[in-house]
Design a binder for these strands. Structure first.
Length: 290
DNA sequence: TCATCACCTGGAGA
DNA sequence: ATCTCCAGGTGAT
């Protein structure tokens, strides 16, 4: 009886909250139509109904939501203090996703100095212009453009998608991926630091964006993207521990030093802790996504 | 190594 | 209406 009860609790604790997860700043190409979420992931379309059921033809079942992670172990590992504990409790259905790397890479290059709505629009435009048409459930969708297509795109066409100064970065990044100067399968095998440095050779990718790509698509769970929000969180809740980062701009050196401290404190699954804290803080300011 | 500043674009607030 | 400021940063002085 006791065993059965605790098993029930575990399942409840470990059930995925789709709305929460999709609205946590990781993905941009998701829309809820009726009570079904539709999302583009590379050349795949994911359609998911509540309670959690993937209803589209996709090979990503049991992969996309990192179902292979040992969540019990990870959560107990990151619960270093009351703040993380309460965030994990309040947002218990929140998950990291394992996105298509190329899409993730282009998406976060587009994210620089922009707003969620704007990023979403840019990416939707890219899909419409360069992606493949796809029909499902009597609806029309566009997949994310392949590297070889995007690397041949004209600057004019990229600008027409609203990319602005990011157009040249996207073009160059697509070329590097297409030529396998950036090889995602290799990056996945490399260690965090090495993969980070490789990604940063791409124009338009600095520390923050590289960390997003590593965490959201390349299984580097120690990534902890340091943006305005996560910096605010550290300053606000952890002044004693991460206090010496109060310099306005996070320089190259400070970024890596801070990251080392973060991994030392939160552990090797720091990326998960980041996601819970980030979601918590954004909700506090009523910031929403999709 | 560090601090400043410009940058496409569209939405929000003055 | 028109302007300014800013948004999940990065690259060039």
């Amino acid at each position: 009886m006791l065993a059965r009860q605790s098993q029930f609790d575990m399942q409840k604790i470990h059930s995925i909250d789709l709305n929460l997860t999709i609205n946590s700043g990781q993905v941009f190409l998701w829309n809820k139509i009726g009570d079904i979420w539709f999302g583009i992931d590379g050349e795949d379309l994911l359609a998911i109904s509540e309670p959690f059921k993937i209803i589209s033809p996709s090979r990503k079942i049991n992969r996309f939501f990192r179902e292979d992670d040992d969540l019990s172990k990870i959560l107990s590992e990151i619960e270093k203090d009351d703040l993380v504990k309460s965030a994990v409790k309040d947002f218990s259905g929140l998950r990291l996703m394992r996105q298509d790397p190329f899409q993730c890479y282009i998406s976060f290059i587009c994210s620089s100095n922009s707003s969620i709505q704007n990023i979403k629009r840019m990416l939707e435009n890219l899909c419409k212009k360069f992606g493949d048409e796809m029909e499902f459930d009597k609806r029309l969708f566009f997949t994310f453009p392949k590297p070889e297509i995007l690397s041949d795109a004209s600057n004019k066409d990229l600008l027409s998608c609203g990319l602005g100064f990011r157009a040249k970065y996207v073009k160059q990044a697509a070329k590097m991926a297409n030529l396998e100067k950036i090889n995602f399968a290799s990056l996945r095998k490399e260690n965090y630091k090495s993969a980070l440095e490789t990604l940063k050779t791409v124009p338009g990718i600095g520390n923050k964006i590289a960390d997003c790509i590593l965490l959201f698509s390349l299984d580097k769970l120690e990534s902890f993207p340091l943006d305005r929000w996560t910096q605010r969180i550290l300053k606000k809740y952890y002044p004693k521990i991460f206090g010496d980062m109060q310099g306005k701009s996070l320089t190259e050196k400070k970024y890596s030093e801070l990251h080392e401290k973060i991994v030392k404190y939160f552990g090797s699954y720091a990326g998960y802790s980041q996601q819970f804290l980030f979601k918590m803080e954004r909700d506090l300011y009523k910031k929403n996504w999709l």
